[in-house]
Design a protein around this nucleic acid. Structure first.
Lengths: 238, 238
DNA sequence: CGAGGGTTTGAAGTGCATCAAATAGTGTGG
DNA sequence: CCACACTATTTGATGCACTTCAAACCCTCG
């Protein structure tokens, strides 16, 4: 791929910017740009893992799937995130499926490079561990939410985190980042339940919904509603 | 605390055995043995974190709690496990509660030592990352189970993992490691639901239950029942 | 304009929670 | 070793949340 594009990505990525300058050229040489169409699989669970990926465009669905076809979405990831990196410490197999939910563009980098960088560059290793800890925390949150919160509360929490990310000052109008069906699955509920729960949320805390756009007049009321059943204080980060 | 006891623990712990010999004495000097009674809190969420802990005796409950008192159990940990270590990479606050579920004995070690060891000993850092990756994987499993499996299946899966841990050859008779109420909470359900679901499991796959002791004649039938709604193959490890 | 997927709505069913009460089990002091 | 107190567990009855199945609606895009 083009060196300037890749360099740009590597330098502005939270974790990968810590790569040793000597290693950088090797990363650039071995990195490959890949594109995926909607619903195209990127890798599947138990595949032997060779690469990890940096997302540059689109949304990637991280999920598990049972024999009967039902799936549990573990995460939905977009632009600066990386995925598929965890297996370097265990069995060299991906422990989840990854697939594109729309037009996706990825940088694929061999895991061996990552492993080598971790082993030889303490600064990088430290950044990597920090990232793992953050991921871990995020998952603890997901687990808490799914056990403790009801459907409308989970949606409210999801919206609050969206607002927080986009820092939309007082405008407080946001778009769902992907299909409602996917948001539903991400929150561990069926599309029908999502639709009804969103309606209940509108009635209970006065938000407006028009297609994928949601407008919130009163954020504090929303957070009182959603965060009441959550251990985190006010704006439930991450 | 007594040096031989602590040395023994440090040397036989998966992660901590990688401590540099030069550091070991410092760890020993600063480590403290602590005991907790049933239901005694070890630390609570958002406390500023100073120590991490190695469990030497008893069971520790790792959980989140909402304002209204309902709690989500994130993990139940026992002997060689460590906990409270994650915050060194983020905000130096514990991101969950920990409390003793019975008579618990812990080795408390300052987090600064851990951080220093990670920063200066690549071998240790590597072992530490491996542990984080394993934890992470375990949590992905929990998340999958709670979204995809019904109560009796989750219990079946729990039993299978117990059997797997204890390697009880063909005997296939095990004891629940802690109160049924706690097992229920660990699996994200109410005690009443647990009781009924366990009964359903008995009817469906012919296991015997007598108090905390469960006897399984036909493990493969149990795993067919429980693992059908799980993405992992046969004995769902971890 | 028409096809097809995404979304909503309705009706009915299932699983789990809740509340209440009975029963089994455990540890204690006598 | 027994009786009591207290807790853990089970059982029953009922309600709620979410799912399922089915159909309508809407919206986009060719």
């Amino acid at each position: 791929m083009q060196e300037d594009t890749l360099q740009n990505w590597l330098k502005h990525n939270d974790i990968l910017s810590h790569i040793d300058t000597k290693s950088l050229q090797i990363f650039i040489n071995q990195a490959r740009l890949q594109t995926f169409k909607k619903d195209e699989p990127i890798f599947i669970q138990n595949d032997v893992s060779h690469h990890f990926y940096i997302i540059t465009k689109g949304w990637v669905k991280i999920f598990r799937e049972t024999l009967d076809g039902s799936q549990a979405i573990i995460d939905m990831l977009s632009s600066p995130h990386i995925f598929g990196e965890k297996s370097i410490f265990t069995d060299r197999r991906y422990d989840y499926n990854a697939s594109a939910t729309n037009a996706v563009e990825l940088i694929a980098i061999p895991l061996d490079l990552l492993k080598n960088e971790i082993d030889t560059n303490p600064d990088f290793a430290h950044a990597f561990m920090k990232m793992m800890a953050t991921h871990h925390k995020k998952q603890e949150n997901d687990l808490e939410h799914i056990t403790l919160q009801k459907a409308p509360e989970r949606i409210g929490c999801f919206i609050l985190r969206l607002i927080d990310q986009h820092q939309t000052e007082k405008t407080s109008s946001i778009n769902l980042p992907y299909d409602k069906t996917l948001v539903a699955a991400r929150l561990g509920m069926k599309p029908e339940t999502f639709s009804r729960a969103l309606n209940k949320l509108r009635q209970d805390v006065g938000i407006e919904i028009s297609g994928a756009t949601i407008t919130i007049d009163n954020i504090s009321e929303l957070s009182r509603y959603a965060c009441g059943a959550c251990s985190a204080e006010f704006p439930c980060k991450s």
